[in-house]
Design a protein around this nucleic acid. Structure first.
Lengths: 154, 154
DNA sequence: GACTATCTAATTGTGCACAATATAAATAGC
DNA sequence: GCTATTTATATTGTGCACAATTAGATAGTC
């Protein structure tokens, strides 16, 4: 079928674009985590929240959002679901009632051990493909920061 | 401040995880495209669909889904919105009435030229950070394929 | 004390993503 | 010709993501 790279007048093919590679690998990660995390009753963003809380308990919604780069419109309903499943408690700070502080509940604390297996399972799914994962990650962080800086300017 | 890598008993910090880097750079791309594409009245997934159609018109929903790795539950409402904004037409194949074929409308064809500027704008936003973008992309494709293969097995 | 600016979180509305299910058409086997 | 299976799309329900708006609380000013 001839060479596939029929780049029509400077419009790069979808498969050649970095953004699309990231879009797809993001979906692939999501699916991989989904099948692993379904056993814990968590989605991937919920797991990220738990990871942060296992590292540091008692954060405010604002602080969680800064760590995860998510706003309250995303976090509020997500946190309510985590509270409904008994993993966390949402408590208004009595000193400043605007703020909601998030604490691990016993059930969420207990999930910590099961959580340790998750990264191992993902590591196996990655096989050797991540290669020098640290360098790949650092490169992606550079790309992220350039994009965010540009979004803020423009 | 000490060394930041206080990896508590084998639980890697969020910032160290490849999945999180990809999660964040995906969001960053989304935001960068959002500010560029809002002028065209497109979202990023809608733009991806248009990219595919500019490359090859008259695809069926199934084929679009294969190219983008999206299912009909995602594409059907997205395509209806593109049809509502006059960029495409959805036509049932008269020979096999299960299938819906997607064609560019004139308005969608006319957007092709404006679309050419998008990748240039993203390139500027990336600055030099993409570096050897092709190799980065190839690496990400490997990661994606390993994850997908593992998802299918498990 | 009332007034205003600021800050935090919740709420609302739109759109993406996907699992599960439904519907309907084409095809295979008989 | 008739049923069974497969295939293509649509529908429904849940959850993430974010912009825009709202509401409550604090702090500072007069």
């Amino acid at each position: 079928m001839a060479k596939q790279g029929r780049a029509e007048e400077g419009m790069p093919r979808l498969e050649q674009q970095l953004c699309f590679a990231i879009y797809q690998v993001g979906h692939a990660f999501n699916r991989a985590y989904r099948s692993i995390l379904s056993g814990l009753g968590l989605t991937y963003p919920q797991y990220l929240v738990m990871l942060v809380l296992w590292e540091q308990d008692g954060l405010m919604v604002k602080e969680l959002g800064e760590r995860l780069m998510l706003d309250s419109g995303t976090l509020t309903p997500l946190l309510k679901r985590l509270e409904a499943s008994g993993l966390i408690r949402r408590e208004r700070d009595p000193r400043d009632e605007r703020q909601v502080r998030i604490h691990l509940a016993e059930k969420g604390e207990g999930l910590r051990e099961e959580g340790r297996c998750v990264e191992q399972a993902i590591g196996e799914a990655l096989g050797g493909t991540a290669g020098d994962a640290a360098r790949l990650r650092d490169h992606l962080d550079l790309v992220r920061d350039a994009l965010l800086a540009s979004s803020r300017e423009g």
